[in-house]
Design a protein around this nucleic acid. Structure first.
Lengths: 229, 229
DNA sequence: GGTTTCCTGTGATATTTATCACAGTTTAAT
DNA sequence: ATTAAACTGTGATAAATATCACAGGAAACC
């Protein structure tokens, strides 16, 4: 981990919310903010630890996880750059409800919670923007979780592939950042079922898989599977 | 529905957030707020409709639902008094993602969204409180949804019973406000499996059921089932 | 009060999914 | 390059759950 002081004025990766901050506000932020790099595989934040900082993911890919029963890792979602991590825990509790682990090399900022709260109480538009983005995320998460409960495995797997293709990588061809075990933990099933699902999609010409490079060949069919369940 | 003008200054059912409002703020709220009663069975808000008002549930019990695939109703959660309804949709989108239906007679307030936003931008502490309560709710919801995905039916049913007993009615004995079909829609299973689960709990002396009056007889055992899944 | 409609309980069966087992592949480490 | 470790693919079987079917109860509606 390399850490350095930060000038938020000139940051190229501002969040939606911090774009509304005045120069004065940005300097308050910069004074309470440290940027650092984290390498793939490291854990940024542990479930169960006390909340102490706002963490802003500038760039890179992160998995948000919880320990399930018999302490199997459940993956809640994959997070890409320009996102605050663990806001619900930060404002809704004193301990973190999720762990965050780097799926790639990352750049993150640690912001002192007191400074962040000060900004929120001084600048209602900032708070409003933060709330807006949280609400958007929540709608998305609830939608995903509720649908997941109804769908069968092929449908959920299709959803996961579409999620990576459309939301995360914005490309029909991408390198899966997860092992099959992790995909299974993400869609709530067993590793074997995930493997069988991928085989099935491959055999039906819906996708191609080479090592961990996936390409969606028949998007309509995949969407169909996602709908049908 | 009976509607009347509202004096928010003297409201006995203020939300956590509106408790921090000044008298002036409360008058702004009161001028843009109408109180009404809604009877059991009516729908307050339809999924898919445009967001137009903040709705505050003063008293009563509401089910929050979404249409699942093949348009089966999924029950996301049960909501009791002193809660804003549909905040995520309101701030995260322009259409409502959930429907809200009365499980009992209700008192609700409709608040003009423009006035509410004005308050949020004028009073950052208010906004902060709103955000805080949203975050608490989210942690709770995510926890529930994630665990639900891992547990088997008996575990989920146990959770639902504990939820009614501890969170909603705060009593070991309560009248189930849902039919078995609805309980099934709540825990994500079939009506028959729900019926079998309840029978099983009854036969094992964990609960007693008379019509829709449920009493938890062996709390420890029920919690055990909830844990074991 | 009688009829209709919705709700509940439970057996039998079919479907879905997990688990076990193990061989073949890829990746990482020396 | 070679070995070890982790990951992947697939069959066989077991467990969980849904679905179908139907009878008996409760509630609601003339």
């Amino acid at each position: 981990m390399v850490s350095q002081e930060n000038n938020c004025r000139i940051c190229q990766e501002k969040s939606c919310a911090s774009k509304v901050l005045s120069i004065g506000n940005l300097d308050i932020l910069g004074n309470s903010c440290r940027t650092m790099t984290i390498s793939k595989g490291e854990t940024i934040l542990h479930e169960g630890s006390l909340t102490s900082h706002v963490i802003y993911l500038r760039s890179g890919l992160v998995k948000e996880t919880v320990k399930g029963i018999d302490s199997q890792e459940q993956i809640f979602k994959i997070i890409k750059g320009k996102t605050y991590l663990g806001m619900s825990s930060l404002f809704g509790d004193t301990i973190n409800h999720f762990s965050y682990k780097a799926l790639s090399d990352l750049t993150v900022c640690h912001i002192e919670i007191s400074a962040f709260k000060q900004l929120m109480l001084e600048n209602a538009e900032f708070t409003y923007k933060i709330m807006e983005s949280q609400c958007k995320e929540n709608l998305h998460n609830y939608d995903k979780l509720l649908k997941q409960g109804q769908k069968k495995i092929f449908g959920r797997l299709a959803d996961a592939l579409l999620y990576f293709s459309e939301d995360i990588f914005e490309n029909k061809k991408f390198t899966l950042p997860l092992t099959q075990q992790e995909v299974a933990n993400f869609i709530g099933t067993s590793r074997e079922s995930t493997a069988r699902g991928l085989s099935n999609f491959r055999q039906n010409g819906i996708i191609s898989v080479n090592n961990s490079v996936v390409e969606i060949l028949d998007l309509n069919c995949l969407k169909q599977v996602s709908r049908t369940g």
